[in-house]
Design a protein around this nucleic acid. Structure first.
Lengths: 230, 230
DNA sequence: CGGCGGATTGAGCCAGTTCAAGTGAAGTGG
DNA sequence: CCACTTCACTTGAACTGGCTCAATCCGCCG
């Protein structure tokens, strides 16, 4: 069986030989998720390590009071649950499929065995974690300093990086997101998002059609993101 | 030579035999820092992995514009630079001693060798990272939802956990911090911090003397931290 | 068609920022 | 030992970004 392309390219397997990659994939089981199904629930024991083969996950953190924080999105080739599956901590977040998705899953035991054989993968997992850490700190810094405008611009640019698709007239954010979700990601209200996006649309910076956003001028958005005005 | 107590207890060495611990410490060099000296600078190649033997580090992230974010404090027994020393990424943060400090340092090469011998340590390092990740996400969530009062209370409680000292009348935050630093940690201004702390002082929740803060009622601070009022 | 989830837009308001002035404690150098 | 500077903190007063609430609109689906 040929290895599916998105998994071939996964940065998790950087530095491995094809044989080693095969060895990993051979030990994995397949999990399919319908749109809206939950892969892992915050607080449950972390029994598996996952890699997205196709589809998209939304990672949430919930508070005791019920407010939720969108932590990140996980696309094809990206891992989920790497750290916790090794220790025996529960999942610190909830992961839900935002579209029909196929995952590869490894049990804690397989993971431990495979990591012992190919320790390079733990370095790769740590690198991913470090990147997420940097992202989280960037969000903290933005929230403490920047105004809403620049923050929203940053959010759009980050999403473009995470799930952007080339498009004749710019970059399309391929995930359909509601104004509320943009607001959650940016740390504001859906009203302010609506007003700001409308303003930018009239300025020709972007275009929205329903829940999709097409960025038409990355440079000007970057300019806004870096300034302290909007 | 006996192993110094703070390193004995370090969670980084959880699950290791005494012999393995000795093996780690035997490969480490000692670095001493004066107050204000910088151990690692953001952007420089990460050549070492460190463990604090005595003292205290302040970890900062700097933006291109020069604003700085206090990421966390690192006390005795805690590691610094764990992830990046494995990949070959540069340090994503700057670490400065806030008091005279002694560090244990391992080169990338030693680290790789030792981790191969005692893989449990990588699990421990990942666990630390996961904890920091959770902290960062908690900060993000607070910044997007909570008012200043609860956030400041959370900051005080977090500091108490990170560097609190038992004291006859409560818990003393052992690090001297300016109002500006509290403001940076909380995501507000030094003026608001000053006003809020003054108010809480008159309510008997805490006491400040110069740059030190003594928390006199953790339960009431937790109550404020969890509410959406102040 | 009506119902429903999402988006827009207007108006008012307030938490918290900003600016400004003043106090006090800790250095520093003559 | 005392003037002078510096740094941290407090407090008052005014301003405002963006939140809140409410009304309305739009597109989709059964």
């Amino acid at each position: 069986m040929p290895v599916p392309p998105p998994l071939q390219r996964s940065r998790i397997f950087d530095g491995l030989t094809d044989a080693e990659r095969e060895q990993w994939l051979g030990r994995a089981t397949r999990v399919t998720l319908k749109r809206g199904e939950t892969l892992a629930r915050q607080g449950e024991p972390a029994r598996h390590f996952y890699l997205v083969e196709t589809g998209f996950l939304k990672v949430l953190q919930l508070t005791v009071e019920g407010t939720e924080l969108i932590v990140r999105f996980v696309g094809a080739g990206e891992p989920f649950g790497g750290v916790v599956a090794l220790g025996n901590a529960p999942y610190p977040v909830t992961a839900t499929a935002t579209q029909p998705s196929v995952m590869r899953a490894w049990t804690r035991e397989s993971l431990a065995t495979l990591l012992a054989a190919t320790p390079q993968v733990s370095v790769n997992i740590m690198r991913e974690m470090a990147a997420h850490m940097t992202d989280a700190l960037t969000r903290v810094r933005e929230l403490t300093t920047a105004r809403v405008g620049p923050r929203l611009a940053q959010t759009l640019l980050r999403l473009a990086r995470q799930c952007g698709e080339r498009h004749p007239e710019g970059v399309l954010i391929s995930q359909p997101l509601t104004r509320q979700e943009f607001a959650d990601l940016t740390g504001t209200t859906l009203y302010t998002v609506s007003r700001t996006l409308t303003k930018w649309e009239t300025m020709g910076l972007l275009q929205t059609r329903q829940r999709l956003v097409l960025l038409r001028s990355l440079p000007r958005l970057e300019e806004i993101a870096g300034s302290d005005e909007d």
